[in-house]
Amino acid sequence: MVEVTLWGSLSAVAGGKAKHEIEAKDIRELFRKLAEQYPGIEPWIDRGIAVAIDGTIYRDTWSKELPEGAEIFLLPRLAGG
């Protein structure tokens, strides 16, 4: 079980809650379970969500494991120059 924090706008489509307890072993499972629980999140996942695990931002490595007790934070997937 990991605690996931959603950024402000995303929490609006997740029942208005910023913090969620999710049973997920990696980013892929986290996204799947969030989408099952809150279908409104799916378009956001399609557009891109980055996952910060203990401060390190992962954008594409959906196989990245979510360690027990790690700080998991969801962020918009950013553009760069």
């Binding site: 924090t5 401060g55 390190t56 931002i57 700080e71 934070f73």
Partner: peptide, 9 residues
């Protein structure tokens, strides 16, 4: 804790 959310390394 950064202003955008995660904790810094």
């Amino acid at each position: 804790r950064s202003s955008y959310g995660p904790i810094y390394g």
